[in-house]
């Protein structure tokens, strides 16, 4: 079951109450972290592309100011359109990234809170406790501040 399928009794992120649900939620959080990583790369790429596009627009305008040609005007209009499309895409990715990060923080916050109790109640082996702790310790306190 994936992070998206892990639901609590109220349909949102649930509270892990035993080892199995804890493991499920942790795996889900690890998947979410990977997907937020991919979204961040996408966002960075989009922004770099827009910066590049905006710079190209400025160059074209500068050149056209000295030597007016209809081809340059067309190029400038095309670049503006591309940057506008990039802005729309950037907004969409940013929004999706925000949702992922928020969900990741909520899940990891829950896992940190219940870890000790679930592991002690079920008397996990020391090796399992250590491995699980190492996995939780790979998450940042505030995932959003990584960006």
């Amino acid at each position: 079951m994936t992070a998206n399928e892990y639901k609590g009794e109220h349909g949102g992120e649930g509270v892990a109450h035993d080892g199995a649900s804890f493991e499920q939620a942790l795996r889900g959080a690890e998947e979410l972290r990977k997907s937020t990583g991919r979204l961040r790369i996408r966002l960075r790429t989009l922004r770099l592309t827009m910066v590049g596009g905006a710079s190209a627009i400025l160059v074209v305008v500068f050149v056209a100011a000295g030597e007016p040609r209809w081809e340059l005007s067309g190029l400038a209009v095309g670049l503006v359109g591309a940057v506008a499309a990039g802005l729309r895409a950037e907004r969409s990715v940013r929004s999706e990234l925000g949702r992922h990060e928020e969900r990741l923080e909520r899940t990891v916050g829950m896992l940190r809170e219940v870890f000790v109790h679930v592991s002690r109640r079920e008397q996990w082996e020391k090796s399992r406790v250590r491995r699980t702790r190492e996995r939780i310790a790979r998450f940042s306190i505030d995932e959003r501040r990584l960006w």
Binding site: E13, A16, H17, T107, G109, E113, V114, H117
Partner: peptide, 12 residues
Amino acid sequence: WDRTGQRALERN
């Protein structure tokens, strides 16, 4: 500090 942690605590 976080609401999810508080909710997990209260449920338990």
